[in-house]
Protein backbone atom coordinates (compact mmCIF):
# COMPACT_ATOMS: atom_id res chain seq x y z
CA UNK A 1 0.00 0.00 0.00
CA UNK A 2 1.33 3.43 -0.95
CA UNK A 3 2.15 5.69 2.03
CA UNK A 4 -0.14 8.45 0.72
CA UNK A 5 -3.01 5.93 0.45
CA UNK A 6 -2.42 4.81 4.03
CA UNK A 7 -2.31 8.44 5.19
CA UNK A 8 -5.59 9.21 3.47
CA UNK A 9 -7.34 6.25 5.12
CA UNK A 10 -5.78 6.96 8.52
CA UNK A 11 -6.84 10.60 8.20
CA UNK A 12 -10.45 9.74 7.43
CA UNK A 13 -10.66 7.14 10.22
CA UNK A 14 -9.18 9.56 12.76
CA UNK A 15 -11.47 12.44 11.85
CA UNK A 16 -14.61 10.28 11.87
CA UNK A 17 -13.93 8.13 14.95
CA UNK A 18 -10.85 9.36 16.79
CA UNK A 19 -9.10 6.03 16.21
CA UNK A 20 -5.40 6.49 15.54
CA UNK A 21 -3.85 4.09 13.04
CA UNK A 22 -0.09 3.87 13.53
CA UNK A 23 2.16 3.33 10.52
CA UNK A 24 2.70 -0.25 11.69
CA UNK A 25 -0.97 -0.98 11.01
CA UNK A 26 -0.66 -1.31 7.22
CA UNK A 27 -1.35 -5.05 7.34
CA UNK A 28 -4.45 -4.38 9.44
CA UNK A 29 -5.75 -1.80 6.98
CA UNK A 30 -5.14 -4.19 4.08
CA UNK A 31 -6.79 -7.19 5.70
CA UNK A 32 -9.80 -5.29 6.97
CA UNK A 33 -10.48 -3.08 3.97
CA UNK A 34 -10.13 -5.72 1.27
CA UNK A 35 -13.61 -7.12 2.10
CA UNK A 36 -14.98 -3.54 2.13
CA UNK A 37 -13.61 -2.96 -1.36
CA UNK A 38 -15.22 -6.19 -2.53
CA UNK A 39 -18.56 -5.25 -0.97
CA UNK A 40 -18.53 -1.93 -2.85
CA UNK A 41 -17.51 -3.67 -6.09
CA UNK A 42 -14.14 -1.94 -6.20
CA UNK A 43 -11.32 -3.90 -7.83
CA UNK A 44 -8.75 -3.41 -5.07
CA UNK A 45 -7.54 -1.11 -2.32
CA UNK A 46 -6.23 1.56 -4.65
CA UNK A 47 -9.64 1.69 -6.31
CA UNK A 48 -11.11 2.08 -2.84
CA UNK A 49 -8.72 4.91 -2.05
CA UNK A 50 -9.61 6.65 -5.34
CA UNK A 51 -13.28 6.39 -4.45
CA UNK A 52 -12.54 7.90 -1.04
CA UNK A 53 -10.67 10.80 -2.65
CA UNK A 54 -13.78 11.61 -4.67
CA UNK A 55 -16.22 11.43 -1.81
CA UNK A 56 -15.53 11.85 1.91
CA UNK A 57 -19.04 11.05 3.07
CA UNK A 58 -21.52 8.26 2.62
CA UNK A 59 -21.69 4.53 2.95
CA UNK A 60 -18.15 3.73 1.80
CA UNK A 61 -16.61 6.01 4.41
CA UNK A 62 -18.95 4.59 7.03
CA UNK A 63 -17.95 1.02 6.16
CA UNK A 64 -14.24 1.88 6.15
CA UNK A 65 -14.46 3.40 9.64
CA UNK A 66 -16.51 0.48 10.96
CA UNK A 67 -14.04 -2.02 9.56
CA UNK A 68 -11.16 -0.31 11.35
CA UNK A 69 -12.71 -0.57 14.83
CA UNK A 70 -11.45 -3.23 17.21
CA UNK A 71 -14.38 -4.91 18.92
CA UNK A 72 -12.61 -7.24 21.33
CA UNK A 73 -14.66 -7.69 24.51
CA UNK A 74 -15.87 -10.29 26.98
CA UNK A 75 -18.44 -10.83 29.73
CA UNK A 76 -17.38 -9.38 33.11
CA UNK A 77 -14.15 -8.25 31.47
CA UNK A 78 -11.40 -7.85 34.10
CA UNK A 79 -13.89 -8.82 36.88
CA UNK A 80 -12.70 -6.12 39.32
CA UNK A 81 -14.65 -3.20 37.85
CA UNK A 82 -17.84 -5.24 38.15
CA UNK A 83 -17.03 -6.09 41.76
CA UNK A 84 -16.36 -2.42 42.39
CA UNK A 85 -19.61 -1.46 40.73
CA UNK A 86 -21.55 -3.95 42.85
CA UNK A 87 -19.76 -3.37 46.16
CA UNK A 88 -19.02 0.35 46.09
CA UNK A 89 -20.92 2.30 43.47
CA UNK A 90 -24.21 0.44 43.62
CA UNK A 91 -24.61 0.61 47.43
CA UNK A 92 -23.90 4.34 47.26
CA UNK A 93 -26.33 4.91 44.42
CA UNK A 94 -29.03 2.87 46.11
CA UNK A 95 -28.72 4.77 49.36
CA UNK A 96 -28.63 8.17 47.67
CA UNK A 97 -31.53 7.53 45.26
CA UNK A 98 -34.01 5.92 47.62
CA UNK A 99 -36.71 8.40 46.59
CA UNK A 100 -36.48 8.01 42.81
CA UNK A 101 -35.55 4.31 42.90
CA UNK A 102 -34.06 4.81 39.47
CA UNK A 103 -30.58 4.45 38.07
CA UNK A 104 -29.32 5.30 34.60
CA UNK A 105 -26.25 3.52 33.28
CA UNK A 106 -24.44 4.09 30.00
CA UNK A 107 -22.02 1.72 28.28
CA UNK A 108 -20.41 4.15 25.87
CA UNK A 109 -18.49 1.76 23.59
CA UNK A 110 -20.35 -1.48 24.10
CA UNK A 111 -19.18 -3.49 21.09
CA UNK A 112 -21.14 -6.78 20.85
CA UNK A 113 -22.94 -6.19 24.15
CA UNK A 114 -21.10 -8.31 26.70
CA UNK A 115 -20.46 -5.34 29.00
CA UNK A 116 -24.04 -4.00 29.29
CA UNK A 117 -25.47 -7.52 29.53
CA UNK A 118 -23.00 -8.33 32.33
CA UNK A 119 -24.35 -5.30 34.18
CA UNK A 120 -27.95 -6.28 33.53
CA UNK A 121 -27.29 -9.76 34.93
CA UNK A 122 -25.35 -8.40 37.87
CA UNK A 123 -28.26 -6.12 38.76
CA UNK A 124 -30.77 -8.94 38.34
CA UNK A 125 -28.64 -11.03 40.69
CA UNK A 126 -29.07 -8.47 43.48
CA UNK A 127 -32.60 -9.78 43.82
CA UNK A 128 -35.29 -8.65 46.24
CA UNK A 129 -33.66 -5.53 47.67
CA UNK A 130 -33.73 -3.86 44.26
CA UNK A 131 -36.92 -5.47 42.99
CA UNK A 132 -38.88 -2.24 42.71
CA UNK A 133 -36.02 -0.25 41.23
CA UNK A 134 -35.84 0.86 37.64
CA UNK A 135 -32.54 0.43 35.82
CA UNK A 136 -32.04 2.04 32.44
CA UNK A 137 -29.03 0.60 30.67
CA UNK A 138 -28.19 2.42 27.47
CA UNK A 139 -25.47 0.85 25.35
CA UNK A 140 -23.95 2.60 22.36
CA UNK A 141 -21.24 2.10 19.79
CA UNK A 142 -20.16 3.70 16.56
CA UNK A 143 -20.25 0.37 14.76
CA UNK A 144 -23.75 -0.61 13.62
CA UNK A 145 -22.76 -4.19 12.81
CA UNK A 146 -21.65 -4.99 16.37
CA UNK A 147 -24.84 -3.41 17.71
CA UNK A 148 -26.86 -5.71 15.50
CA UNK A 149 -25.10 -8.70 17.04
CA UNK A 150 -25.53 -7.23 20.52
CA UNK A 151 -29.29 -6.92 20.05
CA UNK A 152 -29.57 -10.57 19.07
CA UNK A 153 -28.13 -11.53 22.46
CA UNK A 154 -26.68 -14.60 20.82
CA UNK A 155 -23.12 -15.69 21.55
CA UNK A 156 -20.85 -18.56 20.56
CA UNK A 157 -19.69 -21.14 23.06
CA UNK A 158 -16.27 -19.53 22.94
CA UNK A 159 -17.71 -16.10 23.75
CA UNK A 160 -19.82 -17.22 26.71
CA UNK A 161 -16.90 -19.12 28.17
CA UNK A 162 -14.89 -15.96 28.22
CA UNK A 163 -16.19 -14.55 31.46
CA UNK A 164 -19.71 -15.84 31.98
CA UNK A 165 -19.84 -17.96 35.16
CA UNK A 166 -21.45 -21.37 34.53
CA UNK A 167 -24.19 -20.73 37.11
CA UNK A 168 -25.24 -17.54 35.36
CA UNK A 169 -24.94 -19.14 31.95
CA UNK A 170 -27.55 -21.79 32.72
CA UNK A 171 -29.70 -19.29 34.56
CA UNK A 172 -29.89 -16.57 31.90
CA UNK A 173 -29.08 -18.25 28.57
CA UNK A 174 -30.74 -20.86 26.42
CA UNK A 175 -28.80 -23.11 24.09
CA UNK A 176 -29.66 -22.51 20.42
CA UNK A 177 -27.83 -24.91 18.10
CA UNK A 178 -24.21 -24.46 19.12
CA UNK A 179 -24.74 -20.94 20.44
CA UNK A 180 -26.17 -19.49 23.63
CA UNK A 181 -28.88 -16.85 23.62
CA UNK A 182 -29.75 -14.52 26.48
CA UNK A 183 -33.28 -14.70 27.77
CA UNK A 184 -35.71 -11.95 26.70
CA UNK A 185 -35.79 -10.40 30.16
CA UNK A 186 -32.08 -9.58 30.15
CA UNK A 187 -32.12 -8.57 26.50
CA UNK A 188 -34.92 -6.11 27.06
CA UNK A 189 -33.04 -4.58 30.00
CA UNK A 190 -30.55 -2.99 27.60
CA UNK A 191 -31.29 -0.37 24.93
CA UNK A 192 -28.78 -0.34 22.07
CA UNK A 193 -28.19 2.74 19.96
CA UNK A 194 -25.64 3.92 17.42
CA UNK A 195 -23.65 6.83 18.82
CA UNK A 196 -20.27 8.27 17.95
CA UNK A 197 -18.33 9.46 21.00
CA UNK A 198 -17.10 12.39 18.91
CA UNK A 199 -20.68 13.35 18.05
CA UNK A 200 -23.33 15.14 20.08
CA UNK A 201 -23.53 12.83 23.07
CA UNK A 202 -25.90 15.12 24.94
CA UNK A 203 -28.63 13.34 22.98
CA UNK A 204 -28.25 10.15 25.03
CA UNK A 205 -29.29 11.90 28.25
CA UNK A 206 -27.74 12.10 31.73
CA UNK A 207 -26.32 9.18 33.66
CA UNK A 208 -25.49 8.07 37.18
CA UNK A 209 -22.83 5.64 36.02
CA UNK A 210 -20.87 5.52 32.77
CA UNK A 211 -18.73 2.65 31.52
CA UNK A 212 -16.37 3.81 28.79
CA UNK A 213 -13.81 1.06 28.72
CA UNK A 214 -11.10 0.10 26.29
CA UNK A 215 -11.83 2.69 23.64
CA UNK A 216 -9.86 5.75 24.81
CA UNK A 217 -6.65 3.71 24.40
CA UNK A 218 -7.11 4.03 20.64
CA UNK A 219 -7.38 7.85 20.76
CA UNK A 220 -4.68 10.54 20.85
CA UNK A 221 -4.46 12.74 23.98
CA UNK A 222 -6.54 15.61 22.61
CA UNK A 223 -9.36 13.32 21.44
CA UNK A 224 -9.22 11.53 24.78
CA UNK A 225 -9.57 14.84 26.59
CA UNK A 226 -12.44 15.92 24.35
CA UNK A 227 -14.32 12.64 25.00
CA UNK A 228 -13.73 12.68 28.76
CA UNK A 229 -15.01 16.28 28.80
CA UNK A 230 -18.20 15.30 27.04
CA UNK A 231 -18.71 12.27 29.30
CA UNK A 232 -18.27 14.60 32.26
CA UNK A 233 -20.97 16.77 30.80
CA UNK A 234 -23.60 14.03 30.92
CA UNK A 235 -22.49 12.47 34.23
CA UNK A 236 -24.57 13.36 37.29
CA UNK A 237 -22.77 15.52 39.88
CA UNK A 238 -22.17 12.48 42.10
CA UNK A 239 -21.88 9.98 39.27
CA UNK A 240 -19.10 7.46 38.62
CA UNK A 241 -17.15 6.74 35.45
CA UNK A 242 -15.41 3.44 34.77
CA UNK A 243 -12.46 3.38 32.37
CA UNK A 244 -10.50 0.40 31.07
CA UNK A 245 -7.44 -1.07 32.79
CA UNK A 246 -4.97 0.82 30.60
CA UNK A 247 -6.85 4.12 30.65
CA UNK A 248 -6.95 7.02 33.08
CA UNK A 249 -7.68 10.73 33.36
CA UNK A 250 -4.07 11.40 34.32
CA UNK A 251 -2.61 14.22 32.23
CA UNK A 252 -6.08 15.29 31.12
CA UNK A 253 -7.74 18.46 32.26
CA UNK A 254 -10.81 17.01 33.91
CA UNK A 255 -12.68 17.21 37.19
CA UNK A 256 -12.97 13.44 37.27
CA UNK A 257 -10.34 11.95 39.56
CA UNK A 258 -9.49 8.36 40.45
CA UNK A 259 -11.64 7.08 43.31
CA UNK A 260 -9.40 5.92 46.13
CA UNK A 261 -9.20 2.14 46.50
CA UNK A 262 -11.35 1.52 43.47
CA UNK A 263 -9.23 0.95 40.37
CA UNK A 264 -10.71 2.08 37.10
CA UNK A 265 -13.37 4.23 38.80
CA UNK A 266 -13.41 8.02 38.42
CA UNK A 267 -15.57 10.68 40.02
CA UNK A 268 -15.58 14.39 40.85
CA UNK A 269 -13.15 14.90 43.69
CA UNK A 270 -15.62 16.24 46.23
CA UNK A 271 -18.47 13.90 45.58
CA UNK A 272 -20.09 11.22 47.68
CA UNK A 273 -18.71 8.18 45.90
CA UNK A 274 -15.21 9.45 46.59
CA UNK A 275 -15.92 9.88 50.28
CA UNK A 276 -17.89 6.71 50.49
CA UNK A 277 -15.42 4.33 48.81
CA UNK A 278 -12.65 4.36 51.46
CA UNK A 279 -15.22 3.29 54.04
CA UNK A 280 -15.79 0.01 52.24
CA UNK A 281 -13.70 -2.72 53.85
CA UNK A 282 -10.78 -3.90 51.70
CA UNK A 283 -12.04 -7.43 52.21
CA UNK A 284 -15.08 -6.60 50.14
CA UNK A 285 -13.06 -4.86 47.45
CA UNK A 286 -10.81 -7.87 47.12
CA UNK A 287 -13.56 -10.42 46.88
CA UNK A 288 -13.82 -11.84 43.40
CA UNK A 289 -16.80 -14.11 43.55
CA UNK A 290 -19.50 -12.85 41.22
CA UNK A 291 -22.18 -15.14 42.51
Amino acid sequence: MKPEDFDLIAGIVKSKSGLVLGKDKTYLVTSRLTPVARKHKLADLSALVSALRLRREGELVHDVVEAMTTNETSFFRDLKPFDAFRDVVLPYMVSSRQKQKKLRIWCAACSTGQEPYSLAILLREQGGALANWRFDIVATDLNGAVLERARSGRYTQFEVQRGMPAKLLVKYFRKVDNDWQLNPEIRSAVTFREQNLLGNIGAVGRFDVIFCRNVLIYFDPSTKERVIKSLEGVLEEDGALFLGGAESTVGIRSNLKPVKNVRGCYARADNFVTQFAPAIPQRVLNSRALV
Partner: peptide
Protein backbone atom coordinates in the same frame (compact mmCIF):
# COMPACT_ATOMS: atom_id res chain seq x y z
CA UNK B 1 -22.43 -30.64 37.57
CA UNK B 2 -23.17 -27.56 39.67
CA UNK B 3 -25.65 -29.48 41.81
CA UNK B 4 -23.03 -32.18 42.37
CA UNK B 5 -20.66 -29.51 43.71
CA UNK B 6 -18.71 -28.18 40.72
CA UNK B 7 -17.46 -24.59 41.03
CA UNK B 8 -17.12 -23.95 37.31
CA UNK B 9 -17.67 -25.60 33.97
CA UNK B 10 -15.60 -25.46 30.80
CA UNK B 11 -16.83 -26.80 27.48
CA UNK B 12 -14.17 -28.27 25.22
CA UNK B 13 -12.39 -27.02 23.24
CA UNK B 14 -10.78 -24.58 25.66
CA UNK B 15 -7.73 -22.35 25.57
CA UNK B 16 -5.46 -20.60 28.05
CA UNK B 17 -7.69 -17.51 28.25
CA UNK B 18 -10.75 -19.54 29.15
CA UNK B 19 -8.94 -21.54 31.85
CA UNK B 20 -7.33 -18.39 33.24
CA UNK B 21 -10.73 -16.70 33.35
CA UNK B 22 -12.35 -19.62 35.17
CA UNK B 23 -9.49 -19.79 37.68
CA UNK B 24 -9.98 -16.07 38.33
CA UNK B 25 -13.75 -16.48 38.70
Amino acid sequence: AITAGADEYVMKPFDTEIIRGKFAQ
